[in-house]
Design a protein around this nucleic acid. Sequence first.
DNA 1: CGCATTTTAGGTTTGTCACCTAAGATAAAA
DNA 2: TTTTATCTTAGGTGACAAACCTAAAATGCG
Lengths: 137, 137
Amino acid sequence: MKLSLKVEYACQVLAQLARSFDKTEMPHIEELSRLEGIPSNYLVQILNELRNGGLIVSRRGKQGGYRLSRSPAEISLHDVVCAVDGELLGFSLKSGGQSAAKVAEAWTQVAKSFEAETRAINLENLIEESPEGMWYI
Amino acid sequence: MKLSLKVEYACQVLAQLARSFDKTEMPHIEELSRLEGIPSNYLVQILNELRNGGLIVSRRGKQGGYRLSRSPAEISLHDVVCAVDGELLGFSLKSGGQSAAKVAEAWTQVAKSFEAETRAINLENLIEESPEGMWYI
DNA sequence: CGCATTTTAGGTTTGTCACCTAAGATAAAA
DNA sequence: TTTTATCTTAGGTGACAAACCTAAAATGCG
């Protein structure tokens, strides 16, 4: 029951792309890898899935790189999980036993609320300034 | 991002124990296994973890079996996940990159709401009669 | 004691996660 | 056109966990 590292990475790299959304040059893999501390060979796969999911667009060759396909406010955590994990809070539906149906019903309800919550948070929320700035201990 | 089969099994077997909570005889493993369609050799482990988590008590020998340690209304889905999975919606906290902190913050908020939702559903909800009864297609 | 049951300690198999390797495709620039 | 910087794709690996199974030991009831 834990969030995959892949989803976390995807959120991070999308937050980074959100920061450079209005800039003209598109950041490339090595840059994104360095800024967010993600192994570049793994990041390739993640960016690919995000592109297949329609969240980002890419350009190759010199001056190539990645960019969000829509504005940061229009991309939610729900979109990210769907693009990268394919499902959010799925379960098996074997429905063999006497209580299987009721259990599935209960968890479906939890999944609904989970979906609503992830739809409510978008990439803009991930790049807002902290109200007090940063404090170092 | 999917619910483990183990948690589903745990919910089912607990629902079954909730049904026989006021009965005098305690159901034993083979019975529970049959009623809920759970492989008995796997069910053993699950029941063990539920006992270690304090959700059920057991008695061995003849007339042995399992019983809830408290009333069905006092055991929530949150309790079940914690006993069997150890965590609900945890994430890694590598916090290497530039956006890691904000991403963690966002998902922490989601986790909060997830916890609230799972705390709100208890075993009694899993054994309530369907309002219309069963319909067969 | 003898039996039914739980309890515990291992093993197996299958799959997935996180990550790497390497060759190919494309487009800008020299 | 050649070079070069990037994306694209396919595949592979090692560690780990999930979902089971096997077998023996402990415990309590009759």
